[in-house]
């Protein structure tokens, strides 16, 4: 981020309420000895990672280092070939029942929002609760409005995604995930497709989520967000977890050369 971009640190000026941001010793995600290949390309190498309930983890690293692939493995959008992934006590295997169960417990927010353009905002939010959770329509709509209010766009409920700005769409995407009442949220570069002035509104929403104690895994290059909210920052390069640490330590005292290089590129000038 260049110095000339004051739009981003909006979220950093706010005091963060840490009273609910407690990390329990209950394991939310356990990855052990995980490997993944695309054909002959070894994209993830021997990943070991334990995420505790209530943790807020920021994953960063150069483009192509396998960050997206890693978090997409957690809800089986990608299949791993070796090792074990246990999410919320359920092991990810080829068993379709397990996959659907995990997917309904794990929310995911994409870089390009991926809202359903043929459905209204409200329908986007009620679809999965109604069809997967079998929630009655009325109740699902109430929940949806609750979360739309939370992301501060209840007045857009009856519009179509195409009528909203990028930042609004991303907040709807977050609300849509929350409507399933997930226990874990995955974010894959949620702000990289946004104009600078919209980044803050999305980060604000994510901070609120963190304040409520949601377990979050977040691929992002918003280092301000990482410093303030994360309790662990993970640096990935060439398919490996190179370094992980608390944010202060990670930014002030990086251990490996690759981390130093990356941080100098992303923070420096």
């Amino acid at each position: 981020m260049t110095d000339a971009a004051p739009a981003t640190p909006l979220e950093t000026q706010r005091e963060i309420d840490r009273s609910h941001m407690t990390v329990s010793d209950e394991v939310a995600i356990q990855i052990s000895g995980m490997n993944k290949w695309y054909g002959s390309f070894h994209v993830l190498r021997d990943i070991n990672l334990t995420v505790y309930r209530g943790e807020r983890i920021v994953i960063c690293g150069p483009s192509g280092s396998g960050k997206s692939t890693l978090i997409r493995c957690l809800n089986r959008l990608e299949e791993h070939q070796q090792g074990e992934i246990v999410v919320d006590g359920t092991e990810l295997s080829n068993d379709l029942k397990n996959i659907d169960k995990i997917r309904s417990e794990v929310g995911m927010v994409f870089q390009h929002f991926n809202l359903f353009p043929h459905l209204t905002i409200l329908e986007n939010c009620t679809l999965a609760p109604i069809w997967v959770r079998k929630v009655p329509k009325k109740e699902a709509e109430e929940t949806a409005m609750h979360f739309l209010e939370k992301v501060k766009i209840p007045e857009q409920a009856h519009k179509y995604p195409g009528q909203l700005s990028g930042g609004q769409q991303q907040r709807v995407a977050i609300a849509r995930s929350l409507c399933m009442r997930p226990r874990i949220m995955l974010f894959d570069e949620p702000t990289s497709a946004l104009d600078p002035e919209m980044i803050a509104e999305v980060l604000d929403t994510m901070i609120e989520l963190a304040e409520e104690g949601m377990t979050m895994l977040c691929v992002t290059h918003e280092m301000g967000f990482a410093r303030k909210v994360a309790n662990r920052v993970i640096f990935m390069d060439q398919g490996q977890i190179v370094e992980q640490n608390e944010p202060e330590e990670f930014f002030n005292n990086p251990q490996s050369d690759r981390t130093k290089l990356f941080l100098s590129q992303i923070l420096g000038h």
């Binding site: 809800n75 959008l77 659907d100 997917r103 995911m108 994409f110 359903f116 679809l127 999965a128 997967v132």
Partner: peptide
């Protein structure tokens, strides 16, 4: 992917 991620079969 969005449909999958929401747990729709």
């Amino acid at each position: 992917e969005a449909a999958d991620a929401l747990g729709l079969d």
